[in-house]
Amino acid sequence: MKPRLPVLLARHAVLVVFAVVFLTPFAGIVLAAFQDGPGTGGFALPEHWTFDNFSAAWEQGRFGDLITSSLIIAVLVVPATIVLATLAGFGLAILRPAGHRRITGAFVAGLTLPTELVVIALYYNLDGIGLTNNYAGIALAEIALFLPFGVFWMHTHFGNVPREIVESGRIDGAGDLRVLKDLLLPISIPATTTLAVLFFVWAWNQFLIVLVLMQSPGRRTATAGLGYFVGEFSTDVPLLSAASLIVIAPVVVVYLIFQRSFVNGITQGAIKG
């Protein structure tokens, strides 16, 4: 029983209108970024297409340095958070130490704590031990920020692994670490891939923590750098658009490649919460 043609057409028309609304801002800055001269500001095809705005934004915004910083922080944050979350998720879901429910609850509670609450004292705490204006300080702050989701995610994942897999390992005399390494990790690649994709995007997009903890202009992340760039060049639309595209491009590419992992993380991670 298929709907009649006019119904189908109307439905698709509405969906397309929404798609246009969602894409217009992106299309707008792409067009503006290629605009020669100051540009009108409105939605218009460039009269002369040019890459000059990108090279100008790259130079003036020091995006080479900023992207390097973003990558350094991602390299510090993503693997470490995955390792910590995997160990904790395994411990809490499979080994179940006394009080494991309460500990899991303490991690999950972190999902509702706003960054604003943490960041004030975090600045003074880290300043006291020389970790402000420092990649390691930002990395530790972000690891702590992402761990609630990571632990919760790996806990759910290991909790859904059939008990027999673990038991069979035990019968063969495998210790905890062997069970994790040889039996569980090989079937956990999709779960950890999802975490890697989410953590990369979250670390790339993080603003407040970097704004507070990093003062050296050349060592800010790309996202934080863009925040400052706006203040300096607020009227040069083509330049700002080009800078935004430079910052957006890596996460959009990661999203399009790992679309399925990303969406799984958002939907399943949220629902089980």
């Binding site: 972190g110 705490n125 702590a144 761990l147």
Partner: peptide, 30 residues
């Protein structure tokens, strides 16, 4: 074995406590 299980949870718990929960409590104190 149950005590050893804490070793798996400890690193994550330590980082989370030191860089999230502790600052949050400090903010309340401030």
């Amino acid at each position: 074995g149950r005590n050893r299980a804490f070793l798996y949870v400890l690193p994550a718990a330590a980082v989370y406590a030191a860089f999230s929960l502790w600052p949050a409590l400090n903010t309340v104190y401030y």
